[in-house]
């Protein structure tokens, strides 16, 4: 069981490092937001305390990185279930929930990892957190990532195809980001939006990160909205509930059947491609691969 979790985590990280585009966007997107949005808003948002707008924005950027990373992982799960190693997981001698644990954990760790890559921004923006504050920040990153990756898995368990990606992006990721306290203190949003703000897991994740990062400063209007204890409680509760739901739905037999039976269109085109086989003739046995090497076979596998 531990082996399976390790296997999935290693695989996710290897894939992440191999896909240069993903690595690049880890840096590009947050920096773009920090520099462009940060500079623009800096002039608009009044600063009353000793915290600059960019310093206020930084936890929001970490939150964004985790949000995008975990949601992408979740969507990759949908694809994996059809074509990828998730299937290997389902026929390995492991209880079903282990697959969900492994995916949730690896998606959370990958999110945290990407946020950690951006930690130098803390000092670039002139913050000097203590070692203890850094540890607390790390804890906040982990909690936030766990809650979001559980949410991602829950969505993935209900999604049939990766084609719904744009929908998830427009109706989930962006609203979650804008409704959280990433760009402005949550309290500054109008009353009718407050229920949504409070329903957004990212709100508490970012709020929790803001505590250690701005520790010792006087944030005035640009501080945390909730207490540390409340943030932790909400995130932990969300993680448990969302994960339990995801594990339940992921393993649900009929649903699994439906997904597994959605024949990917590739199957059909591939089935038609080859001509009739020749009548098998006895031939000397040698390693299978040897003759296969030189042949370039134009079977495209999207992955």
């Amino acid at each position: 069981m531990i082996g399976a979790i390790v296997a999935v985590v290693v695989r996710e990280f290897l894939r992440f490092v191999r896909q240069r585009g993903r690595l690049l966007s880890t840096f590009a997107r947050p920096l773009l937001w920090l520099v462009v949005i940060g500079s623009g808003f800096e002039r608009v948002v009044p600063t009353e305390g000793t915290v600059s707008y960019k310093q206020f924005l930084l936890p929001g950027i970490f939150g964004m990185v985790i949000l995008f990373s975990t949601m992408l992982s979740a969507l990759a799960t949908v694809h994996d279930r059809e074509f990828g190693p998730i299937r290997m997981l389902l026929v390995a001698p492991l209880p079903r929930p282990v697959a969900v644990v492994a995916k949730t954990l690896s998606s959370a760790l990958l999110g945290v990892f990407q946020a950690v890559l951006l930690l130098p921004l803390i000092w670039i923006l002139g913050l000097h957190p203590s070692a203890r504050s850094l540890l607390e920040l790390l804890g906040a990153l982990v909690l936030c990532a766990l809650a979001l990756s559980s949410l991602g898995m829950l969505i993935a368990s209900r999604m049939r195809s990766i084609e719904n990606f744009a929908g998830v992006m427009n109706f989930l990721m962006f609203p979650m980001f804008f409704l959280s306290s990433a760009l402005y203190p949550a309290s500054s949003l109008p009353g009718f939006l407050q229920p949504l703000v409070r329903a957004d897991p990212l709100t508490y994740g970012i709020d929790l990160m803001r505590h250690p990062l701005l520790h010792g400063l006087y944030p005035a209007n640009l501080g945390s909205d909730y207490t540390v204890r409340f943030d932790i409680l909400v995130l932990a509760a969300l993680t448990v509930v969302l994960f339990a739901l995801a594990a339940l739905l992921f393993g649900e037999e009929d649903h699994l059947a439906r997904i597994l039976l959605t024949e990917p269109p590739k199957t059909r085109s591939r089935a038609e491609a080859p001509g009739r086989p020749p009548s098998p003739r006895p031939a000397p046995i040698e390693p299978v691969g040897s003759a296969l090497h030189d042949e370039q076979h134009p079977v495209a596998h999207g992955q």
């Binding site: 290897l14 894939r15 190693p85 990917p264 199957t267």
Partner: peptide, 10 residues
């Protein structure tokens, strides 16, 4: 499986 389950980037 009918469909390959390999990771192409690995």
């Amino acid at each position: 499986f009918q469909e390959t389950t390999l990771d192409l980037d690995l």
